[in-house]
Structures are given as C-alpha cells and as structure tokens.
Nucleic acid binder design. Structure first.
Length: 289
DNA sequence: CGCTGTGACCGGGCGC
DNA sequence: TGCGCCCGGTCACAG
C-alpha cells in the first residue's frame, strides 16, 4: 500500500518519461465502462469514460509532482491548463512500457485500467487491482475541495506547527495518537507503515491519547516521521502487498522496518496488536510505554 | 453545528 | 478443493 515515499518514487520515475510528452490516445478498460454504467465511480471520477478519453487526448503533460499521496500531473491543451490528480489507493500503479505485455506482473497486466499513448509511442499505464485508486481530471485543485483540506507537506517548514496546533483541538486531543498522525488532515502522507515505525522508534504506544503527550514528545514524534519518510524515499520505498515502482522494481525499505508486520520485537518480546481507527496497529509492550 | 460511526468501493490471500 | 471473510485509503453521509 503506497504511502508518501512510494508515491514520491513513482513521481520521480514518471517525470522523465511523461513531462513534455503529449497524449495521443487514451483507452479505458472495459471494467471501467461497465462499472460506470452501473452507476459506480470506478477509478475515473465524475467524468463519463468516453468524455475522459476525449478530454485527455491531446493533453501535453507539463509537470509531474506529488501532494500528500496524490500524483499531480499538470496538463495543457488548446491554451488551457488542467490538473490530473491520481491516487494509487491500495493497489494502484503507473507503468512506462512499450506494450501492455511489458508490464512486469501478470496481475497488473490484467488490471490495466487506463492506457495513455504518448507522442513518442510509449504507453503510460495506470493499473489497479482493487480499484481503490482514482484518476480525477480537474481544471484546478480547488475544483475538488478535499485537496485543499490536506495537511501541509511534512517537509514544509510550517508542517510541525500545523500538527501541534491541530492536536490541541478537542476533535483530535482525545483520539489515539496513531489515528491522529495517520489522518491526512493533520499530517500528509503518513500511513500505517510509517506511523507504526515512528511510534516504535519514539517508544510511544499507538493507543496513547494525544493530549497526554507533551509538546516536546509531539515535536520529537513529528521529527521521527519526517526522518523515516526521508529514509524510505532514499531507499526506494517499501515493497508491501505488490507495490512496485514504475520499472516494476521492489523498494528497499521493507527490510528496514522494525515493527510493522512483526511478530516479535528486536528486544525479544512478542508484539501486540490492536485496532485503532479501523487499522491494525502493532507495538512492543516492552519498548513502547 | 460539530463530531462520531458506518457504508461504499474491491479482489488477493488466507483460514477453515 | 472451495467457500467466505478480512483488509484498507478516503470520502460521503446518516445520526
């Protein structure tokens, strides 16, 4: 499940293959067509499949960037600017290939849902096994209000202050800290993997009620999250549940995880798990107090 | 009005 | 072998 570091990796790989290219053809999957006909918002949001194909055709990709776990592609066509906001959901992936058969995993070949042909003949393919991902064509971010409500990028100067301020609101103060740091309105891009790791490294139990933490603890936790997100970006992200980068390669971060998915802590103690905010949360009852 | 809880979207993988 | 359940990022909406 791609979190911020994995999405950042995808963006860095997409840039050289997508920027300054023009989309000459778009083909959405039969699944999208039939699902949309049934009234569901399958991957392509708001627009009817044919309208999405028509509007995307002729677009020039001028910029690829990341905002939280969203991939933003800035597009231009006929002198107008657009934004394609794509989210990988649980199992989405982008591939840069010469043909569909070159997608390195059969499951991703089977679930190729949007095929963009570029003016150099290459294909940009959005695949998604569980269809929780999305492709949202907008004129600007403001056209989809949830994008404006996301917390600052964790690497921004004001992100820690924003986090501290939010944690003092009664809406968040009485929640478990893990639910708070995984909330994209508080911190951008920190999902279950990195929340679990940061709490372990700071020796804080995930169920700790937020207001019981001191500001110093909150600052240290935030700094730990930033550090571990950086570390993961450097080593290519975590390969968990089929996540692969644009070249189909695995990342290296999964080998460095100390608590996520562990049955036993490095100290020898069996880990415990509980559900917080609907997500499985693992911690060491010995190391985390 | 604000917050909380629940539903909706899915198929791979695993347990029985 | 086969069936059924669990998992999860995010938003929408009911209460």
């Amino acid at each position: 499940m791609p979190e911020l570091p994995e999405v950042e990796g995808v963006v860095r790989q997409l840039r050289p293959v997508a920027e300054q290219k023009t989309i000459t053809h778009v083909q959405l999957s039969e699944t999208i067509y039939t699902s949309k006909e049934a009234g569901k918002e399958c991957i392509v949001k708001v627009l009817a499949p044919h309208d999405f194909e028509r509007m995307m055709t002729g677009m020039t990709i001028t910029d690829v960037s990341r905002r939280a776990k969203y991939i933003y592609m800035t597009l231009t066509k006929d002198g107008r600017t657009y934004l394609l906001a794509s989210h990988l959901g649980m199992s989405g992936a982008w591939f840069d290939v010469a043909s569909i058969e070159d997608i390195p995993d059969a499951k991703y070949q089977k679930h190729a849902h949007a095929i963009f042909t570029l003016n150099n003949g290459r294909l940009l393919v959005f695949s998604d096994i569980r269809r929780f991902g999305e492709l949202r064509l907008l004129q600007e971010a403001a056209d989809y209000p949830p994008l404006l409500l996301m917390a600052p990028e964790p690497f921004d100067d004001d992100a820690c202050a924003y986090f501290i301020e939010k944690t003092t609101l009664k809406k968040y103060a009485n929640k478990p800290i893990k639910a708070v740091i995984m909330d994209g309105h508080i911190i951008s891009g920190c999902g279950n993997i990195y929340a679990t790791e940061a709490l372990y490294l700071e020796r804080i139990r995930p169920q700790t009620i937020t207001h019981t933490l001191s500001d110093a603890q909150k600052r240290a936790l935030f700094a730990q999250i930033v550090r571990i997100l950086h570390e993961s970006i450097e080593v290519g992200g975590s390969t968990i549940s089929d996540y692969r980068n644009v070249n189909g390669e695995a990342g290296g971060m999964q080998h460095r995880l100390k608590m996520y998915g562990k049955k036993q802590c490095a100290c020898g103690t069996a880990t415990e798990s509980l559900v917080i905010g609907g997500r499985t949360s693992v911690y060491c009852p010995n190391c985390q107090q």
